[in-house]
């Protein structure tokens, strides 16, 4: 057993929108929908990213936020980074599914969508120029907060409408945690199962350091995908996250810090 990064070559980079790129690697990674890898830029840092392409192509889809992603965005085809994983659990596949993606949250959901039979996909972003994978999933229902594309409003508004006339057994979701929390509440009131992919700061990625802990759950090990039974017990869901020191802060404070 070992958990060491393997150096891979970036063989293709696609620009998904002004702030998001997908990086494809020359190595096939066997992974299930929802799993993530730790990406290492030697001498800089190491961070978790969901696999957005698995199978013929292997890739991660990244939003430019802080120091690490800025450096990654300067990289060109032919450059190399380190990868270890895949880590975490995965989405449990079910029929009659609805998928709710907010912003970059589409990354872990995209390989799931490819493994589902006729899911109803709701893809949301702040505005038209922030959309990701709207061409990859042409049947998705698109929403933008400002109405610059698709339906104006939140993904959660569309979800409520969809549930009115479509029988769904499970809702899969990933995106800003406030959004996921709302999706979960909608699931609860409709008595529909929910599977949400959470994000927390990680160190080891394989369940020993305790950094990613939420109410006794390790997001890197028992997660990142949590289903309703666990979400009900997780007071920290939509509540708190830990900074690098382990200090507990509100999720919004955590997001601000992580993007700095």
């Amino acid at each position: 057993m070992s958990e060491l990064p393997e150096i891979v070559k970036i063989i293709k980079i696609t620009q998904e929108n002004p702030c998001v790129k997908t990086f494809f690697f020359d190595k096939r990674i066997q992974a299930k929908p929802g799993q993530f890898v730790m990406a290492w830029i030697p001498g800089l840092d190491e961070k978790p990213f969901s696999l957005s392409y698995v199978g013929k192509e292997t890739g991660i889809t990244v939003e430019e936020k802080g120091k690490f992603t800025k450096r990654l965005f300067q990289m060109k085809e032919g450059d190399k980074i380190g990868i270890r994983g895949p880590y975490g659990n995965s989405f449990g596949l079910k029929a009659n599914a609805c998928v709710v993606a907010g912003g970059c949250g589409i990354a872990p959901l995209s390989t799931l969508i490819e493994n589902l039979k006729n899911p109803f996909v709701i893809l949301g972003a702040r505005s038209k120029d922030r959309l990701i994978f709207e061409k990859r999933f042409p049947n998705a229902k698109i929403t933008t907060d400002d109405g610059s594309f698709g339906e104006k409003g939140f993904v959660t508004d569309v979800l409520k409408n969809v549930l009115r006339d479509r029988k769904s057994e499970v809702i899969y979701t990933c995106g800003p945690e406030v959004m996921m929390k709302k999706v979960f509440e909608i699931c609860e009131s409709h008595k529909i199962g929910c599977q949400a992919s959470l994000e927390r700061y990680m160190k080891c990625g394989f369940g020993v350091c305790g950094q990613c802990e939420v109410n006794g759950f390790r997001v890197c090990k028992e997660g990142p995908v949590f289903s309703s039974e666990s979400l009900r017990e997780m007071k920290g869901f939509g509540g708190f996250a830990r900074l690098k020191s382990g200090e507990r802060v509100s999720v919004s404070e955590y997001i601000q810090w992580r993007c700095a």
């Binding site: 057993m1 070992s2 958990e3 060491l4 990064p5 730790m38 290492w40 800089l44 840092d45 190491e46 961070k47 160190k203 080891c204 394989f206 020993v208 350091c209 900074l243 690098k244 020191s245 382990g246 200090e247």
Partner: peptide, 15 residues
């Protein structure tokens, strides 16, 4: 005082 610790990678496993 609180400490941030070292930068990642911080924990690895080798053979």
């Amino acid at each position: 005082e609180a400490r941030e610790g070292h930068k990642n990678p911080t924990v690895i496993a080798f053979e």
